[in-house]
């Protein structure tokens, strides 16, 4: 049997993304020179929502791009083949502050690939990272600048982020396989 525990509902996601938008404005003193880049797939709608929040707060909406990291993974040839999608960044990232957006930060390997991918588009002044969920278990020295919610997890658990643009509803659930109640170190 599989247990699911709700971690965030629609309102919690909305509030977290609004808080992240405020933190982005505070840290960057506005939205000038900012480009939001969502990591496909669910990072893209999250980046759009943060951009809309920034427009509400500051009156200007920063450009939003999408990034597919399939060609930059460090495990190409070691896992089943997956199709890649075209990346699209509407403006030059040269000299800009790029805020990478993803749904879940876990091992950090996706973000590492995204860092490689983004630098092919130019040399940003800085790259920051925003994630809806940080579930721990990093395998690389990577941390997020903005976090919606920290969720301690076991490796065998799965964090499922669902967004209305992709999945038809907004929620985050923790999926625990059977027998995962037994003691396992949570990070």
């Amino acid at each position: 049997m599989v247990n699911q525990a709700a971690i965030m509902d629609q309102d919690a996601i909305r509030r977290a993304l609004m808080r992240i938008a405020h933190e982005v404005v505070e840290k960057n003193r506005g939205v000038g020179g900012l480009v939001l880049v969502g990591i496909r797939r669910r990072g893209v709608p999250l980046a759009r929502r943060i951009a809309e929040n920034l427009a509400q707060i500051e009156g200007t909406e920063p450009p939003v791009g999408s990034l597919d990291i399939g060609l930059y993974r460090d495990d190409v040839g070691r896992r089943p083949w997956t199709p890649v999608a075209a990346s699209q960044i509407p403006v030059s990232v040269e000299g800009k502050v790029v805020v990478l957006v993803d749904d879940v930060l876990y091992t950090g390997r996706t973000v590492r690939a995204a860092l490689d991918a983004i630098t092919e588009w130019g040399r940003p002044a800085a790259i920051q990272l925003a994630v809806l969920i940080d579930r721990g278990h990093r395998e690389l020295p990577i941390r997020a600048d903005y976090v919606g919610k920290n969720v301690p997890t076991a490796r065998r658990e799965e964090v499922l982020v669902q967004l209305r643009e992709v999945d038809g509803l907004d929620q985050v659930v923790l999926v625990k396989p059977e027998g995962s109640d037994q003691v396992e170190e949570k990070r």
């Binding site: 060609l71 199709p83 890649v84 999608a85 075209a86 990346s87 699209q88 092919e120």
Partner: peptide
């Protein structure tokens, strides 16, 4: 679909 994303890579400077 994959070729479409490869076509995007071909539009880049690098």
């Amino acid at each position: 679909d994959t070729a479409e994303s490869m076509a995007e890579v071909l539009t880049r400077r690098v």
